[in-house]
């Protein structure tokens, strides 16, 4: 089978799996909305009517089929809670989340790479031990603790009181920086320990290869070795980690940050949908995340070919 078809069938199976599991969990076993919509004292007929509207009286297979069909025709429907169209909700929330999460995500990765390169260059010396110790410490602090700590430190009268405690009223660069700084710092703090550790392991492995010895035997400086040879040879694992964590950080990470800071992004919208059983929103988010994963996988395979001549 040609490469593209193989990838595509693999992706198709993955989408089937993701949608099946999320449908079972979130829709079939998810919260029953009958009473939320019509209140406690409804008549039997009213209940039956609402259940039919919601599709509750149909079988699992039929409902799953509808779910898939809706997803692939982008017929995402409207939110059960607010009545707003799901497309509109996505259009409103996704840019907020990207603006909120991307700076911290990118800086957390770059900082991790820089620290890991430094540690690799000074392997087994005190700089390396310091960086390794720092990353283990970072890994041992809970996300929630970091957020609370930074909030107290930067946003309250008990600390520096420079930034807002919560919210997102962005209307320009200044207000953007005002609201994005503390969440960004939190995200960097959370991710940098894990990133540094991961990248250090990759770089140390690369630095042990034979061709690094060759480079040194031909007079390359430690800087040249790290920046050119080690870094370029490590691009495949770096890109893999970067690409594959994008959907997870954007959805999972934003879920906590947005709930905590009260920011109207996709994470908060999704979490509200989980707890209220807002099926149209859930369908869209889970389905689109799965599709994003497949697209990212295809795209990542394509980038591999650009950075590593061995991958044909």
């Amino acid at each position: 089978m040609p490469w593209f078809l193989r990838k595509l069938s693999h992706g198709g199976l993955l989408i089937l799996g993701v949608t099946f599991i999320s449908f079972s969990l979130m829709v079939w076993f998810g919260p029953d909305q009958t009473y939320t919509l019509i209140g406690k004292n409804a008549t039997t007929e009213q209940i039956a009517e609402v259940r039919e509207q919601l599709g509750y009286n149909q079988s699992f297979v039929v409902r799953y089929g509808h779910y898939l069909a809706d997803l692939f025709t982008f017929n995402l429907g409207a939110s059960n809670s607010s009545g707003e169209s799901v497309n509109r909700i996505l259009q409103k929330t996704i840019p907020v989340t990207l603006a909120l999460m991307l700076p911290g995500f990118i800086l957390g990765n770059l900082l991790g790479i820089a620290l890991a390169l430094l540690a690799t260059g000074k392997k087994d010396q005190w700089t390396d031990r310091l960086i390794t110790g720092f990353s283990v410490t970072g890994m041992s602090i809970s996300f929630l603790v970091v957020i609370i700590f930074l909030q107290v430190l930067l946003c309250t009268p008990y600390g520096l009181n420079l930034f807002p405690v919560r919210g997102w009223q962005v209307s320009g660069l200044a207000s953007y920086l005002y609201y994005v700084t503390v969440p960004t710092l939190s995200l960097i703090f959370i991710t940098v320990g894990y990133n540094t550790r991961f990248f250090r392991a990759v770089f140390v492995e690369e630095a042990g290869k034979d061709h690094i010895r060759t480079a040194r035997a031909y007079g390359a400086s430690t800087m040249t070795i790290l920046w050119r040879h080690v870094l370029k040879n490590s691009l495949v694992p770096i890109i893999t980690r970067f690409m594959y964590t994008i959907p997870l950080v954007v959805i999972s990470g934003s879920l906590l940050i947005e709930s905590y800071f009260g920011i109207p992004g996709i994470g908060k919208a999704t979490f509200d949908a989980v707890t209220s059983g807002d099926q149209p929103v859930l369908k869209a988010v889970v389905g689109l995340t799965a599709v994003a994963f497949i697209v990212i996988q295809l795209f990542t395979d394509f980038i591999y070919k650009l950075v590593d001549p061995r991958i044909a």
């Binding site: 061709h211 010895r213 060759t214 031909y218 007079g219 370029k232 691009l235």
Partner: peptide
């Protein structure tokens, strides 16, 4: 470093791994 590869060079046992795979 100025001497290595310039005044004194070395060839290694394993030609398969001695060259950097990502540079021509």
């Amino acid at each position: 470093r100025k001497l290595r590869g310039n005044e004194i060079s070395m060839i290694f046992q394993e030609p398969l791994t001695a060259l950097d795979p990502v540079f021509s």
